[in-house]
């Protein structure tokens, strides 16, 4: 294995696991290897994908954000209520939702960086706060029925094999491409790696550590709100209980995607692979009519495997 750089091992493992999983499922279940299933992998998990990409940035910087699921839930009910109950224009509502999510992210980032509070605790606070606010907005599900949602719902890009991608997966794929570019071609993106790799060194190298760290939580707040909006587009409704405990799935996807939980090592592309593995596992339990709790356990086992693998690789 000497010819493979150590840092590629988790990513290559992820890719191998995905290929094996998908091939095995295709061989076992008729109709699995179809573009419909592929389209489904993206569509059903678009909001998880968006938030996992945001989580990748936070984890790369050496932090963690547990508030994402609640922010998604809050955004979904906020958007639905404002459009349906208040009759507001969806575009204005989206802007407001994005602003709220971004502000919460910025606030948490500032608390973490300026007051040196543990990230998991501050974002736990954010988790409580956003979930509570979601129920404060409206304690039950709200349908969205608006011409803009109808016309966005009609968007469908054929991807061959008769399958189509709707607006939700398209937003997800755009976010993926943009963040991919940011992490590889901007100083901000590279600084994230540096800070996660060794914050002390990054400071000594004169990198803007504080600014970058606050910004990464802010960006994640924005992406969580965007994920919430995407969810309303996919479901045509909002619900305060939406995306409960989604932060755990997002973290699992990021880690399975080969990103080191201690920060500094990982790829946004890996997170995409992680998401595909996650989605395929659930797809398999569906095809095999197995209990979906088996999928949760399988994800937990993968998570354990990857964390231990990372530990062994990076052991000095």
């Amino acid at each position: 294995m000497n010819f493979i750089p150590k840092k590629w091992i988790p990513l290559l493992t992820t890719a191998t696991v995905f290929v094996l999983l998908f091939s095995a499922a295709s061989w076992q279940y008729e109709g699995f290897a179809s573009m419909y299933v592929v389209a489904d992998l993206f569509s059903e998990n678009a909001f998880l994908g968006i938030t996992a990409i945001g989580m990748t940035l936070v984890i790369l910087s050496g932090g963690i954000d547990l508030s994402v699921g609640s922010v998604i839930g809050f955004t979904s009910i906020f958007v639905a209520t404002m459009i349906t109950d208040r009759g507001m224009n969806p575009i204005a509502v989206w802007m407001m939702a994005l602003l709220l999510g971004t502000s919460l992210g910025a606030l948490m980032g500032a608390l973490i960086q300026v007051y040196k509070l543990p990230a998991f605790l501050v974002t736990l606070g954010g988790l409580f706060f956003a979930r509570g606010m979601a129920f404060f907005v409206k304690p039950e599900a709200v349908q969205i029925d608006h011409p803009i949602y109808d016309s966005l719902g009609d968007i469908a890009i054929p991807i061959g094999g008769g399958a189509e991608l709707g607006v939700a997966p398209l937003i997800f794929l755009s976010v993926f491409v943009i963040v991919l570019v940011i992490t590889h071609f901007t100083r901000f993106g590279r600084n994230l790696y540096a800070i996660g790799g060794n914050e002390e060194s990054a400071l000594l190298m004169g990198l803007p550590v504080a600014r970058t760290k606050i910004f990464v939580y802010t960006a994640n707040g924005f992406l969580s709100a965007l994920a919430g909006i995407t969810m309303t587009l996919y479901m045509d409704s909002g619900n305060p209980i939406n995306a409960t405990a989604l932060e755990l799935d997002a973290i699992a996807v990021v880690v399975i995607g080969g990103t080191l939980l201690t920060g500094g090592v990982g790829y946004v592309a890996g997170t995409m692979l992680g998401l595909l593995i996650y989605a395929t596992i659930y797809q398999i339990t569906f095809f095999a009519s197995l209990r979906s709790s088996l999928a949760t356990i399988a994800i937990g086992v993968l998570l354990l495997g990857f964390i231990v693998l990372q530990k062994l690789i990076h052991r000095k």
């Binding site: 755990l248 088996l294 949760t296 356990i297 937990g300 086992v301 998570l303 354990l304």
Partner: peptide, 13 residues
């Protein structure tokens, strides 16, 4: 976190 994620799956199972 690992058990937090998978524990609920085990309970459901």
């Amino acid at each position: 976190l690992i058990l937090m994620v998978s524990g609920r799956g085990i309970a459901k199972f």
